[in-house]
Amino acid sequence: MSSPGSTLRDAWLLATGTLTAVRVPPPGRVDRSVAGLAMLLAPLAVVPLAAATALVVVLGDLVDLPPLATAYVVLLALALGTRAFHWDGLADTADGLTASYSRERSLEVMRTGPVGPAGVVAVVLVAGLQAAGLTAVVRHEHGWWAVALLVCVSRVGLPLACVRGVPAARSDGLGATHIGAVPVVGAVAVLLVALVLAGLAGHALGSVVAGVVGLVLAVAAVVALLVRCSRRLGGITGDVLGATVEVGLAVLLLAAATA
């Protein structure tokens, strides 16, 4: 039987190695308990990415880079820092949901198909919305701090999507071990922590309400996506997990832009 310490270590390595481009040793084991804990650690595992985005915002301000340019460099840093993993999931999810009325055909498109028109449109629109929100946020004196916090908060969609009761669309694939592996109490705890972080991000921009409302709307968007995919595909896949991150971040940034 594995000790709690080894389980935590394996979960941390799994979360960091999967959700970021940071090089870490492979976990000693990957089972549902490790995978579930890894999803709970997701907001913490991306702290290196959050720090990188904060640094980009600070440097952009120092060299008087236009806010829109800074916003796109932030998105570039996130894409490089995740190997564009979540963007691929968003594109595949959009293609799958629009490919056919056949569940089997949709899942096949998500597994093997190249990015189609729906996937391209989804990536362009969501990236554009993220850039629009970032452009407003980085203008603030403490924008760097808010951006870093919101990057971490955006990963709250992962434990929510993997909470027990959410079905997996197929028994194989990267997401199969994670989906349904997160205890409800754990997901609620992470959500409460995210609420505090979102409030702090809003406070940095001058409006705690904007941060809190942003989280509420982001969670609503993630839940809507999960319901749609569950009805359409019979469950969710690893691609859907990636889509929740990018959609959630877009909503958070747009809400923060109103602060």
Rank of each mutant, 00 (worst) to 15 (best):
G113P: 10
T93L: 10
A99I: 01
A136P: 02
G116Y: 13
T135S: 15
T112S: 15
A132W: 12
M110P: 03
A118E: 09
L107T: 04
A127D: 03
V123T: 13
S100G: 12
G116K: 15
G119S: 08
A136Y: 06
A131Q: 03
D88P: 00
V120L: 10
T98A: 15
A132C: 10
A132H: 11
G133S: 11
G128K: 09
D92E: 07
P117D: 12
A94D: 01
R103N: 07
T135H: 13
G89Q: 05
Q130T: 04
E108W: 14
L97H: 02
G133Y: 10
A94N: 04
L97I: 01
D88Y: 00
T98Y: 12
Y101N: 14
G89H: 02
Q130G: 02
G96P: 08
M110G: 01
A122L: 06
P117Q: 11
D92P: 01
V137P: 13
E104L: 08
G96V: 02
G96T: 06
A127I: 00
A118T: 07
D92K: 00
V137I: 08
V126I: 14
E108Y: 11
S102E: 10
G96E: 03
E104C: 01
G116Q: 15
A94T: 02
V120M: 12
E108M: 13
R105H: 11
V120R: 03
G116P: 14
G128M: 09
V109Q: 11
P117A: 15
L125E: 06
R103E: 13
V124K: 02
A118F: 15
D95T: 03
M110E: 02
V120T: 10
V124Y: 07
T98F: 12
L97D: 03
R111M: 04
L129E: 05
V109I: 09
A122V: 01
V120P: 06
S100Y: 05
